[in-house]
Design a protein around this nucleic acid. Structure first.
Lengths: 358, 358
DNA sequence: TCGATCACCGTAAACGTTTACGGTACTATG
DNA sequence: CATAGTACCGTAAACGTTTACGGTGATCGA
């Protein structure tokens, strides 16, 4: 004899979702749901049958119904802006980070999606929409501004999030960031030891926080040697190849040209090299360069001296830091690094071989 | 006197969503919903008040509730795989395409998200999950395989989708693709006119369809001149810088070295250049190269002769082709290009200057 | 034999929307 | 004045889940 199904008899046609599955097995939808969700109060034999039938019929719970009921989506959003001029970071960077993030998320049946904020929309507005619509259980933010309104907005609504990059706006959220202090210190020590005194640095043209950090830490590292960072030698640029090219032009136009330069990001090195070579100058012979490695920069000549990191590991750490702050998952990551500057290794190339007589 | 609200009196505390808004205005939730959704049967004065209050209280309809009821999500997914080695497309290619897609979607209140399939998960399985969960109203697929099982799967379920790249699997869906025939013909004509007879081509190492197309069309263009494509001169490579470097090494190891080469994608040029220069060879002087332009390739020296396209326009066309097949939007795009090979312009550089005596 | 405990399962409410349906008050028309 | 029509609005069902609650039959101990 068949059970009845919440206002519908077995004869009712066109059943969908969990009802169809329950009908097929002639048990109630409650039991099906419990079986699928791994609840303890269901017979193991029943559970086996349910899982089997689910696989057979290709049943996957409807996300809308599920999240409407639970208030949870099993989705984590990685917010990023489209339009290359703004993001700067080539997308292979994020693709590698994503891969790390997902190896962690997969363990918890969480899905990662990239929330693409159009370059024509205000990021704050976009975030507001995403949150109000109840789109994701947690967020990963990048391209953090020096003062970032998104932080307070999320904190007020108690949305778990982690950021790739610190900010002066601190609401207690976890973050990961690059070790600008370490990079600046190693770079400056190395250049000063080779006799350099006039050292230039680059920074992104916008108010992204890493620019401030990079300049500040470079100045600090110079101060340790009794040197000061000449404001005239801080070059702003778009974080892409064209930006690097432009920096080279600006630098070459200076009367008292610096003998060394620190490049803040991976992509500008390519344009900078080109700018130099058009003027007949050669990295490592006429000027010392320390930058950051990327898949592209491996093919520069002379080879670039620069810092490198595992993007995949960075993604893993990012995911763990986020989950550590989410009540449902925190017990899995009792001692995750909630705030960490990510160490980078210096790969020695030829671009900083240029040294000055003592 | 206040209205009652579907089993709840005004005194009920903790109202959320549309109920809270209705309570605030002292009207029914039905009217609020109608007002917000632009239904005709609502007083304009009422509508004004509702919109005002919604803005004031920051109300945004809950996505789960809405899509559960309507069976629609207002989300379009762009499926891509994480892990740089697989996606291949270096740099900011997709970010630019996205920007174009979104300018179209924004007009219809559709949101674009990138569905990130982990490199550890089978793309077909991933797609199955996404569809069954009812995640998106439509999909954009890229990295189309020569035979792509995803097409049939989506067609069977009547999920609207468009692909960036043709496939032998044709289920009648719209697609956009690069004009390999045009590119091959222009390139080959140009090289043959400069006396080249042994011309090499590259192709991606996997079964992605564009590789087959590129090789086939190149062979066809050669045949028009009475030449054949030597299978020994078809080089497979990963679609990144390292792949290009590897191709150079393979090519240089050949006894009867080709005098010209066509590079299938944007990123490999950088590695290929490097491979040549390490062997003391120079593009345009010792071998003729025709490739594809990218933000990076602008900084190659000697300058690359290559094809270029507007990625943003490509994104716009992609979005329009998709919407043209979705019943709710098709009337906006009565004469969209449903299947189109995208023309590319040839930018003349120095890399193909090398010519042979007649 | 009789409660009590237990394992398992069915019932129905609830999540936040949208929308078909019907109702009410007002206007127009004869 | 009666009727029809109109403009607007409230009601409640429905979407597909999850889960608190209660119910049933079996087992077990005294």
């Amino acid at each position: 004899m068949s059970v009845r199904y919440q206002n519908r008899t077995l004869k009712a046609a066109g059943m969908t979702g969990i009802r169809r599955l329950a009908q097929h097995l002639d048990i109630s939808i409650g039991t099906v749901s419990r079986a699928l969700n791994g609840r303890p109060d269901v017979n193991e034999e029943t559970r086996r049958k349910v899982l089997e039938a689910a696989a057979e019929l290709g049943y996957v719970p409807n996300q809308s119904g599920r999240s409407l009921r639970q208030g949870t989506t099993n989705i984590i959003g990685f917010m990023m802006q489209t339009g290359t001029e703004i993001t700067g970071q080539g997308d292979t960077f994020f693709m590698s980070v994503f891969d790390g993030v997902q190896t962690v998320f997969a363990r918890h049946h969480l899905d990662l999606v990239a929330l693409l904020c159009s370059s024509e929309e205000d990021p704050d507005d976009y975030l507001r929409r995403v949150v109000a619509r109840g789109f994701a259980d947690g967020l990963i933010l990048s391209a953090t501004q020096r003062h970032d309104a998104r932080f307070e907005f999320l904190a007020k609504r108690k949305i778990p999030f982690v950021t790739l990059g610190r900010s002066l706006t601190d609401v207690g959220q976890p973050w990961l960031d690059l070790d600008f202090e370490g990079m600046a210190q190693i770079s400056i020590d190395r250049l000063v030891a080779r006799g350099h005194r006039r050292i230039a640095v680059t920074r992104p043209h916008d108010d992204i926080n890493l620019g401030h950090l990079f300049v500040d830490q470079s100045a600090k590292a110079l101060a340790a040697h009794g040197l000061t960072l000449d404001p005239d030698l801080v070059f702003s640029s778009k974080p892409n190849e064209a930006g690097g090219y432009h920096v080279a032009q600006q630098l070459l136009a200076k009367k008292d040209r610096p003998t060394a330069i620190l490049l803040v990001n991976e992509t500008i090195a390519i344009g900078f090299y080109r700018g130099l070579s058009e003027a007949g100058l050669k990295p490592g012979r006429d000027i010392a360069i320390i930058g950051r490695q990327s898949p592209q920069s491996h093919f520069l000549s002379p080879s670039l001296t620069g810092f490198t990191l595992s993007r995949r590991d960075l993604g893993i750490a990012l995911a763990e830091a986020l989950l550590a702050t989410m009540p449902a998952f925190s017990h899995f990551y009792p001692d995750a690094d909630l705030r960490k500057v990510w160490p980078e290794d210096l790969v020695e190339g030829e671009s900083d071989a240029f040294s000055l007589p003592a």
